[in-house]
Design a protein around this nucleic acid. Structure first.
Lengths: 343, 343
DNA sequence: GCGTCGCCTGGGAGCGCTCCCATGGCTCCG
DNA sequence: CGGAGCCATGGGAGCGCTCCCAGGCGACGC
């Protein structure tokens, strides 16, 4: 019965084995692995050599069991919002998040959760210590999830300004207001005077803020007309809104659409009505997405630094994990007007 | 100093506490939690009640420590050539993957890994039992990672047919060949006879297969001309290729582009040269992406079931996790021609 | 009526790690 | 030269769970 017995899982050296190899105790190896200073230079080297020789990597489960930290953050996406996926926004955000995290030992856990049952699962995951923090994207206006989590002391960070106040839950967002204002001012500087905007849904912060930016840029200006039509960020709504606007005022010469998709729709409508862009009507979109590059004429648009927003989201989370209870201000990242053919 | 001492982390009941509450032993509770049958009806109920009452959720780390399973799968994205894969592709794939996984207890871990150092990290993660399986997307042709992992006995599944043979590493892919053939045949049936195709990069399976489909559809047909120009899936390359094609043969009346982006570029070139689409030239793209809906005219395109491909990817992984060593055939999912205005 | 079988159940051992206290040796000061 | 103090280290005690073996008990058969 020699070769039987437990058969020490050969491939994975344990702390104990490293200790034996280095001629020290478990405790000492643990200190080295975790970067404690209280180890003499000689021992340090011996242990490091042993670690290298054996190819030791700490067992995450074992560590997590005692430290009660998981070294994992959860990224929750409400998938019901199909809009999120039609845009590269999601991918770029994840990329930024992931990049920032990759500089630490933190892992990224992804979860699509729209139903209440799935939100419950998120809370379970958190309560049970599977994750150290949660990043949320694309919330529905009144979603209690972030508040619940934060109230329970879990680090939380949001992407996009939440509609209801979230008791100091930090969030990252683009400077929607500033970006819209800049876009509108740019149109004004081009000599345009008969303005229209196609808004996003007014129950979303992005929709509200972009309209506010438009208004703010035109505030107090004389000899300017301003029309507002509602859209839902989608292309069809942009086309519809544009048609409506032209009915109300056929002389419109400048349009700011709160999304590129809506701008693309507007472009269609304008063309159908025989307007030349930008000669007759100047048009600016928002997002600087792929569509903006592919329309004809291509769209002047407001770029948001999505990748950087992802990184900031990660930082917001990491800060809270390191210093629990810390109150963080929102991170509002600057936007930039990208000039193309449409304005 | 009464209130001090260990203070049993109140919020999280353990197996032991559930056992006490139900008046049984740890072992029995464990059996209930893990769905073993060897428990009498009465005990079962008592335990279930206790679990509900206490809100017990198993501690993942503890379980993982002993079972040596992590209940986590890793999704690795080589971000360096994110460019190639249109981004909605990525999002939809993740969504499918995630949806399938959400029906199990498996967690999804996401990692962007392009550099060698990061690939190393993936191998560490796997060797160290952090993950039970790995899904890989957007591989570089000769990437040894999947082979290494598979050789070590790790469940692996790929998205996209790998270029080099991977010793039975299963993959999911769209039926690129069939889709391209169908698109080309459709053009033929419309009475078109002077064909051209704009290919994807010929060092990628998708590029190769889509060209093969085009060729296959036209094989043996008489009175048909066929031109081939190379692209790289990007819009600019499509525009360039189209211009070139028109120089070679101004009479071209049908174009199959291996991506929507290239088709959009081709559209630009065609318009610039005064060709009407679809009247003078019929044009079909591939991917059925957003761009296809936003061009003017909108693009007829080959749709791949990306969401379903994500689910299949998950299934491929799960099967291997449940039955290690199982050899799985690739999953080739059907494509579908979506007719719009351009052809 | 006693032995046997099988079904449930209890609980010890141990997964790999961190935490913390005890220990031993050494330096330094009076 | 002795004692105090400090630093580096060793190793026990768990973290919460699963696995597995032993044992209790009821049912059934001879």
């Amino acid at each position: 019965m020699p070769s039987s017995s437990r058969m020490r899982t050969a491939g994975r050296p344990t702390l104990e084995q490293v200790a034996a190899e280095a001629g020290v105790s478990r405790g000492t190896v643990s200190r080295v692995v975790n970067g404690s200073l209280e180890v003499s230079a000689g021992t340090l080297k011996a242990v490091q050599d042993a670690i290298r020789k054996l190819g030791y990597v700490p067992n995450h489960a074992a560590r997590s069991l005692v430290t009660r930290r998981s070294d994992t953050v959860l990224f929750v996406v409400s998938e019901s919002d199909a809009r999120v996926f039609s845009e590269p926004f999601f991918a770029a955000l994840v990329r930024g998040l992931s990049q920032e995290l990759s500089m630490t030992t933190l892992q990224l856990n992804l979860m699509m959760a729209s139903t209440a049952r799935q939100h419950e699962r998120v809370e379970h995951l958190v309560r049970n210590g599977h994750v150290d923090g949660v990043a949320l994207i694309s919330l529905h206006g009144d979603d209690p999830l972030p508040r619940n989590l934060a109230a329970a002391g879990t680090p939380v960070a949001l992407s996009g300004r939440p509609m209801s106040d979230m008791d100091h839950v930090p969030y990252v967002d683009a400077d929607n207001l500033g970006g819209s204002r800049a876009a509108t001012e740019y149109l004004y500087q081009q000599g345009r005077r008969r303005f229209a905007t196609i808004t996003g849904p007014q129950d979303m912060a992005a929709g509200i803020d972009r309209l506010a930016g438009f208004r703010s840029a035109l505030k107090g200006r004389r000899g300017v007309t301003r029309r507002v039509a509602q859209g839902d960020f989608g292309q069809a709504s942009g086309e519809h809104a544009m048609r409506e606007l032209l009915t109300v005022d056929p002389e419109i010469d400048a349009v700011f659409a709160a999304s590129d998709l809506m701008a693309a729709g507007a472009l269609r409508a304008l063309r159908a009505e025989g307007r030349r862009v930008p000669d007759d009507v100047a048009l600016v979109g928002f997002d600087d997405s792929d569509v903006a590059r592919n329309t004809e004429p291509s769209l002047t648009s407001v770029r948001q630094p999505v990748h950087e927003m992802g990184r900031e989201l990660a930082r917001l989370l990491m800060t809270q994990i390191d210093r629990p209870g810390q109150r963080l201000p929102p991170a509002i990242l600057p936007t930039e007007l990208v000039r193309r053919e449409s304005a």
